[in-house]
Design a protein around this nucleic acid. Sequence first.
DNA 1: TCCAGAGATGAATCCACCC
DNA 2: GGGGTGGATTCATCTCTGG
Lengths: 402, 402
Amino acid sequence: MSILLGDCKEQLKNIEAGSVDLIYLDPPFFTQKTQKLKTRDNTKAYSFNDSWTSIDDYYTFIRDRLIECHRVLKSTGSIFLHCDKYASHYLRMALDEVFGMENFQSEIVWSYKRWSNSKSGLLNNHQTIYFYSKTKDFKFNRIYTDYSETTNVDQILQERIRDEHNRSKYKFDENGNAVTGKAKKGVPLSDVWEIPFLNPKAKERTGYPTQKPILLLEQIIRIASDEGDIVLDPFCGSGTTVVAAELMNRWSIGIDASQDAVELTKQRLENPVRTSSHLLEKGKEKYINKTAEELAFLRLMDAVPVQRNSGIDGFLKEYYVDKPVPVKIQSANENLDGAMEKLRHASKKRGCLLSILIRTKHDHSLFMDDIKQNNYDNILVIDSYDLQINDWITENRNTRTY
Amino acid sequence: MSILLGDCKEQLKNIEAGSVDLIYLDPPFFTQKTQKLKTRDNTKAYSFNDSWTSIDDYYTFIRDRLIECHRVLKSTGSIFLHCDKYASHYLRMALDEVFGMENFQSEIVWSYKRWSNSKSGLLNNHQTIYFYSKTKDFKFNRIYTDYSETTNVDQILQERIRDEHNRSKYKFDENGNAVTGKAKKGVPLSDVWEIPFLNPKAKERTGYPTQKPILLLEQIIRIASDEGDIVLDPFCGSGTTVVAAELMNRWSIGIDASQDAVELTKQRLENPVRTSSHLLEKGKEKYINKTAEELAFLRLMDAVPVQRNSGIDGFLKEYYVDKPVPVKIQSANENLDGAMEKLRHASKKRGCLLSILIRTKHDHSLFMDDIKQNNYDNILVIDSYDLQINDWITENRNTRTY
DNA sequence: TCCAGAGATGAATCCACCC
DNA sequence: GGGGTGGATTCATCTCTGG
């Protein structure tokens, strides 16, 4: 692989036409600011300038470089252009101009959650990647993902036919049994990619501003290239593309106008660090330790669910006497005493002056009257609706006739 | 509300300048096809033409109508323009031209899962909505969503200070206990909205092509308008915007060039149906809002389509003595007597032997003791969790010292 | 009134440490 | 050791102040 220093417009001229399989491009976004960041140990500050005299100026800059990209791409090759909301429409116009509207393949949404500041308006939680091919015969590896948990897989496996109105319906044999079609591999990859943002604590971080997660680049490289192919990044920055390509046995070319970026990339290649996301591997379901029913309770009380603390299921959104109000829902395998003890402990640690326990069943714990009358440890015990309804039914079933 | 027939370019001229709070616009997408769809019973086929001589022609068409939209909008108003991937960049260019680049607020991604014949390439699972305001002082209602499953909520309740290197860290008191900061409501709404695509079998479905889910419109209307505001949809099609506005107590104006569309909209208004999506019932919702509370109730019950003035919010999943058990939640503008009267009426019609009323506030209606002791008309009245908590606080605030 | 720059902000999630 | 939880760190930030 090679890392080149210089403006990619010039550097690309040295690359042979039709030689590259995949280009990933992460140009400045037209933020009109200088992007800066320091390494964690404060030893080095990286920055690049993203200020322009005008949007036309920016447009020309991008278009000129796209023209060179187009030249070096193989006829089966594709380009992925990363943008954010500021100038995505201009970037796409430039792509239309250079690659042709008919070679537009997808608008990929990279969606993530981020530690962010609250602002008036919607939180920015995505960036866009435009996927264009050079011709209509482009290399594309299908990836299949798991069916979503709400999908009825049995139904998918059934064969379909069309009725007299040309509507599709399921096929049944003469005995009325569903006919199973050929095995499906899963759902083809969507154009919305949920990949975690590079975390503040991730070892993968280099201190270079705007660094992208390797996981994102891996996905692009996987769908648009094979082992041994050539991957090019004309604005390589911290070198994520090059590192990902290396890890996946592709050849790669990185170009950047900054000496710092080039050195960082070379350095990173010597010891590539890839943070695997626990969240992606395990799935977010693994982190959810609440049942849908518990979540419903919390919602009804206007409480925030808490997934990680034992003894507490959530906090009320409103404080009581400047202290948070923890909420606990008695679970099926807990008696009231035990639930109360846990809640009391968690509540004390935080100095809370009111906590709420939702009772979901009767057991032989403390007498309710005791608890209610004494405001026991500032724990307010509330019977769940279900419990109240069942109590009513029990009371009335035998005394009433209809 | 009013539904107008005709080209919106002409119809908008009859609307006073600066009179509209919110515009939602779902113009043809430049698919270069005629969009057709049949109703489920095959009695009617709806269609509209989306073919253009050129992209410039399309651009001009849109821009001319946006100019009128800009004129009728209040200075605090905003516009939401729905596009799909084919022409989104052109639509945004037109918005930049008419509303100004500086009034761009968000690129909203509506993401959904949808079955589709697997073509080569990525599955198309999103559409884009551009959000522009008329001025920088625009109306915006904040919505808060749940914290991520992995978030340590306990920690973020803590207050922070800065150390000598200007890095931020958490604050502890002299005893080493964490100091809690101010109350947190949750995470502000993201610009990526996961809302299920209209289920093909949903009752809500009218048979009109490109119909949008009412949940999507509700979200837009909620963030950008208040009750009593005026909502405009210049390409109203099947009338989803108008129906959503109606359900949410906004005034609305719908315009469409097709006689069929106008009639359908009027018809739909007479009996607005909202399917509470199956996915949402399963608790996968990504956003919190007023209906979240309603959804939480629905979890405990069997959902019924929300129909106005029916007096019932749902039924319990279990029957009582072979009869369904209707449930009603006292709403903010109802007193207990009124709520009870509606519930009793609805309940009697169905011969129910038990109905449940959730009381959400105190008022000067019947005495609770009366109701509880007499099992008044077999209506079981339960105080909402919120109400019980507030009662506790009221009782204890003055009698306790800390 | 507008722009630049300082200062406040806030939650996601990996890591380290603790039993 | 491995499972769980407390802590640290960050900004293709966001808001507000002052000149």
